[in-house]
Design a protein around this nucleic acid. Structure first.
Lengths: 336, 336
DNA sequence: CTGAAAGCGCTAACAA
DNA sequence: TTGTTAGCGCTTTCAG
């Protein structure tokens, strides 16, 4: 593979001249420039990004940590991150956290080994303390969808509690009071917040909480199916179901279809959704939108500003948005 | 950031000794080893992958080119590639081809700039000629789901034509003869092959081809919806529909649901599927499975063997597999 | 078993 | 405007 030396000798100039021409630094006699460019073309020369990294002490790489790759969620995130990075001519290094703290730690270690200039972390298993510790290191990072006290300026956040409340309020507004909930694993922060939002919405409306109406799932489709099954069997007579994830809603819907439960005639449906999966279901399911793509895009912007030590203002907090489709039936209000 | 020099001076040895200990080359007095390890721990030292790359002339990076990131297909592929690469302690660099030859070229250029040891290319827009030209370069690559004459040993292939034929034959076997088809863009090789498979299956069964029964989509959900609409309107009375992609089937199903077309009572459904999306639809849709995950996994194996110049035997061709679910109705045979 | 020295491909002062 | 020199952090002969 041709190196800068080869180009230099072919063009009859010094390496540093070639380097300058590549980087467009300073002025050159037009014929040297021509000679060099000719030599580069002839040798099919491309500077080594690696050598460059070493010489400039900046790798031009950015690390992206995600929990896992399957499902559309990650692709959406990655799409945004990569496109944005492309604009700045930066390389993207990805690693998955394998759903455990060790996995996430290992991923960050790899980023570090490559001397990435910064990381975008969609970390779900590292503790706040560990993250604060990481913040002591010189490499900047941005936390995507996470809030850690003391690291506010690095956090791209979303109010999961509020989002859930909005969803449930919509149901309440349509006259529902027997509202079931399939939550995610409640030991995970954002997941717990969604559940809390559900509880609070009911409380605020003066609706009593029926424990049999909330079921803890694991965000997977299967668990949504199981939950729907259990809810439908129980004598609670829910009129509406709120799911904390689109996959669980898929599962629930599957159950309802199989058992010929009509939507929304018999049960109204409302879901969380980040990649508009709810718009691919039948019927289209109303949802609160979790704008992960926008957040991912902004995360890159924030990271880059941190890398450059510039303090530009960036919107770091995102709002939930209701996307009403046709899965909620308006109930006649029965006067109490 | 601590460098090997810092470790060396803290441990009171020479850099090269540290290097050897890191790489476990040769023998050392146990106390030098201890001192060095202690120094590394104390300084929180991690060797720079970049400096290493430069010194060893091997970047330890692999490039993965895909068309786009959204949808589950890519995630599935990436999951396999990354996991496999992790096993070999290699870094993964991804780039998207932006659905055009220029985009793919640019992506490969980036891989080249980083001096990736090899590429996995899910290239859809580069011509066979250009690929053959690329094969002249020293960097090895594997073509995922593509066949290029002369590059057989680098191709991981799947017989799209046969797969489509199998799907359609299943329909025929169940007594269908009015079989519609939603194909992908027919100017793309694999897409055209799927369409051809459909045509051939009909021909072999002596069924005449009705032009109104085949519609060209673009693999997107929307186009499936539109196709179903058009097919349902036309007076052709299809009894079965074959879709060349799972997304288009989603769209078609949406249309059928909206218009209360019962599946499979009124129309039987059969689809192509790579990530088991058909098992998330209602009803579960029967499909031919395109094993992209397996293929991706094997692609990494093949690439690594090429990087190491070892000639191990690897299965490069994959077979379609029918996944029968409940979207096909058995028709009573009417004696002709 | 360990140190010295050269070199990977590039950039960045400093001179000229 | 261009060349010289040193150096980025590591590995790899070659000596010792």
């Amino acid at each position: 593979m041709a190196s800068i030396k080869d180009v230099a000798s072919l063009a009859g100039v010094h390496r540093s001249t070639v380097s300058r021409i590549i980087n467009g630094e300073g002025k050159f006699r037009s014929d040297t420039k021509r000679k060099v460019e000719q030599a580069m073309a002839e040798l099919n020369y491309r500077p080594s990004a690696i050598a460059r990294s070493l010489a400039t002490a900046s790798s031009n790489m950015t690390g992206l940590l995600v929990t896992y790759y399957t499902g559309g969620f990650f692709g959406e995130m990655m799409e945004q991150v990569q496109s944005e990075l492309d604009l700045h001519d930066k390389f993207l290094i990805t690693a998955q956290g394998h759903r455990c703290a060790d996995g996430e730690r290992e991923a960050i270690r790899r980023f570090h080994d490559l001397r990435c200039e910064g990381y975008i972390l969609n970390s779900r298993y590292l503790s706040d303390d560990e993250l604060r510790e990481l913040a002591q290191e010189p490499t900047p990072f941005v936390l995507l969808d996470r809030v850690v006290e003391g690291l506010e300026s690095r956090c791209i956040t979303f109010d999961h509690r509020l989002a859930a409340t909005m969803a449930v309020n919509h149901l309440i507004g349509q006259g529902h009071s027997q509202i079931a909930c399939i939550s995610g694993p409640r030991n995970r922060a954002s997941s717990y917040q969604r559940y809390q939002g559900y509880i609070e919405a009911l409380q605020n409306a003066g609706i009593s909480i029926a424990p049999t109406l909330s079921i803890e799932g694991n965000y997977g489709r299967e668990s949504g199916y199981l939950a729907a099954q259990q809810l439908y069997r129980s004598p609670s007579e829910m009129t509406a179901l709120f799911s904390c994830s689109e996959e669980m809603m898929q599962g629930a819907l599957q159950f309802f279809h199989e058992h010929h439960v009509e939507i929304p005639q018999q049960v109204s449906l409302m879901s969380f959704d980040s990649i508009d999966l709810c718009a691919t279901m039948y019927p289209f399911v109303s949802a609160v939108h979790f704008p992960i793509s926008d957040m991912a895009r902004v995360a890159v912007g924030l990271l880059i500003s941190q890398i450059r030590h510039q303090d530009i203002h960036i919107q770091r907090h995102f709002e939930p948005e209701l996307r009403i489709r046709n899965s909620v039936k308006k109930l006649k209000l029965v006067s109490g």
